[in-house]
């Protein structure tokens, strides 16, 4: 089971700023361990952000994204109290979904 994300969502004017910290190894598949063996690729492939259950961001990530990545989004049409759901799926099929409330 993957570790939880940390989600911050706050209204700035009429735009909702969402910041997500994800806990993930994000292995590129290019690195080798101390024995010289290739470390298999392990990275987040798709991520989605939903506002009150309606998808507002849908994206793909690649192995070039850093370990424990931070993503930021700006969403219009949100209001304080809305529910933000962020989910990701990685290339091994592992997934995680966390929620936060817009402040």
């Amino acid at each position: 089971m993957a570790d939880p994300m940390k989600i911050r969502a706050a209204m700035k004017g009429d735009v909702c700023e969402i910041r997500v910290l994800m806990s993930h190894a994000m292995e590129t598949g290019m690195r080798k361990d101390s024995d010289g063996k290739t470390i298999p690729a392990h990275f987040i492939q798709t991520l989605t952000v939903a506002l009150n259950g309606k998808a507002v961001v849908s994206g793909q990530a690649a192995p070039s994204v850093s370990r424990n990545p931070v993503f930021g989004f700006k969403v219009k049409g949100a209001k304080s109290g809305d529910k933000v759901t962020v989910s990701w799926v990685d290339n091994k099929g592992d997934k995680r979904s966390d929620e936060a409330t817009v402040a």
């Binding site: 570790d3 939880p4 940390k6 910041r19 910290l21 806990s23 424990n68 930021g72």
Partner: peptide
């Protein structure tokens, strides 16, 4: 620091 991954370790 605004989005410091330290927070992930704090959660754990």
């Amino acid at each position: 620091e605004d989005s410091n991954p330290s927070e992930l370790f704090e959660l754990k």
